[in-house]
């Protein structure tokens, strides 16, 4: 993929992560599973997913997003 395309992809991923951190489609739903509401399980799973997405972002697109070379910021203290 070209640089532009991956950048837009990341913006999209972040937007989806923000939007569905609260499961709006379960609004007023009171179903429980294993003693906790299903919407809470969704949220817990979603946060795990967010962590994975953030880790991938940090590995792949972190420096490009700021337009810097990895070598440039690799210096220590």
């Amino acid at each position: 993929m070209t640089r532009k395309k991956t950048d837009y992809l990341w913006i999209g991923v972040f937007a989806v992560l923000v939007t569905f951190a609260v499961p709006w489609f379960l609004w007023r739903d009171a179903t429980t599973w294993q003693g906790l509401p299903v919407w809470l399980w969704w949220h817990i799973g979603w946060m795990g997913l967010a962590s994975v997405a953030f880790a991938l972002f940090a590995r792949g697109a972190w420096d490009r997003g700021m337009n810097v070379d990895p070598e440039e910021v690799g210096f220590d203290g």
Binding site: H43, S51, A55, V73, G74, F75, D76
Partner: peptide, 17 residues
Amino acid sequence: DVRVLKRSFALWPVLVV
């Protein structure tokens, strides 16, 4: 260094939960 920022960023949602 930058690794510190990256790791903190990725671990953040899990820690919050």
